[in-house]
């Protein structure tokens, strides 16, 4: 869907982006991860031509973006900024309607689409005629997202979209983000410096440093097969947490299920989530059912830990 080839951007002597290449598949969520100043934003802005590259090419849907008129290109790519970039002189409704207006939609259609998005993003209709400065940070960020999604662009670029939010709000918006149906059919490139966020939201991660991509792969790839010391070091502080999140409990036999207090757990449930449910008040456990709905065994805390270490050992020796 998106193909980036040997892309570079030099500001004078500074090589902000230094010959990077990556692909993003349709409906995939790729995260550009790295410390501040490593060239993430510059990379992202070259994808919608807010910045013109020094070298290299970008193809979206097999079309070279250099050959398209920038305005037209941008109207087909949603863009969400860290500081949301909402127009302070437009109401929430007007802000969301900017792109449809540029595309000359009719009024009815715009109204309909705006209310639809407000509902999906859990914003009350009362906010329609309110100015952005009257909203909380989380609400502003949702409006920013709505504005990017309104014309249903196939590609979404997000530059630290949740960076300005406090942790509680962030966690809530992460959950909403993952649940939002509109995003399921989008190809997303998201920039963040937050390792947890990258692991939680990314299908794949490009870890960047000084304008280059150090390693790209799935979160588990990065965790268990770090390519070098830098990758290892980058994840070190939060390694345990990330591992718990990346690893699932031992799977049930073919056709069986895992249940907690009688409720069936989804197949990709993380070890972390299960542990969070435990109250550590005695012999809590999850039950393993076979394909005929018969309980075969219970997995307590110790069992899960054992499985975790076995998995880790196996992964690192792959």
């Amino acid at each position: 869907m998106i193909k980036v080839e040997h892309l570079s951007k030099h500001f004078g002597k500074v090589k902000a982006v230094d010959g990077i290449s990556f692909d993003v598949n349709e409906h995939e969520n790729l995260v550009l991860l790295g410390t501040s100043g490593c060239g993430k934003t510059t990379t992202l802005k070259m994808l919608n031509r807010l910045i013109e590259p020094t070298h290299g090419k970008v193809f979206i849907n097999n079309k070279n973006i250099q050959e398209q008129q920038p305005e037209i290109l941008r109207r087909g790519i949603g863009y969400v900024l860290q500081n949301n970039g909402l127009f302070p002189h437009y109401t929430v409704g007007e802000n969301i309607a900017i792109v449809p207006q540029l595309l000359n939609w009719d009024k009815k259609q715009i109204q309909h689409r705006v209310s639809e998005l407000l509902e999906k993003l859990h914003l009350s209709k009362d906010y329609l005629n309110v100015y952005p400065n009257e909203l909380s940070g989380g609400q502003q960020q949702r409006v920013g997202l709505a504005r990017a999604l309104v014309a249903d662009p196939p590609v979404l670029l997000m530059d630290e979209p949740f960076g300005a939010l406090d942790n509680v709000t962030k966690a809530k918006i992460h959950a909403e983000f993952k649940a939002l149906d509109e995003l399921k059919k989008k190809t997303i490139i998201m920039v963040t410096h937050d390792v947890q966020e990258a692991f939680e939201l990314g299908d794949r991660i490009c870890l960047m440093d000084r304008g280059r991509i150090i390693q790209q792969g799935t979160p588990t790839d990065l965790l268990f097969n770090p390519r070098n010391r830098f990758v290892e070091g980058f994840l070190k502080e939060q390694r345990l947490l990330l591992e718990f999140r990346a690893i699932t409990p031992p799977p049930p036999p073919e056709g069986g299920t895992l249940r907690l207090n009688g409720k069936v757990l989804p197949p990709d449930v993380s070890m972390w989530w299960v542990m969070e449910q435990f109250k550590f008040k005695g012999n809590e456990s999850i039950s393993v059912y076979d394909d005929r709905d018969k309980e075969i065994k219970k997995l307590g805390f110790e069992d899960l830990m054992l499985a975790f270490y076995q998995y880790k050992q196996q992964k690192t020796h792959e």
Binding site: N48, L50, P70, E71, I72, L73, R74, R75, I77, Y79, L81, Q82, N83, N84, G85, L86, F87, P88, H89, I98, V99, L102, R147
Partner: peptide, 24 residues
């Protein structure tokens, strides 16, 4: 950031001038 958002949404230079810069 507001100007950048306007540009990223596909506004032309003149649209940015009349809809964003001058009003603000």
């Amino acid at each position: 950031a507001v100007k950048e958002a306007a540009m990223a949404m596909g506004m032309s230079k003149w649209q940015i001038l009349f809809k964003v810069e001058l009003p603000l």
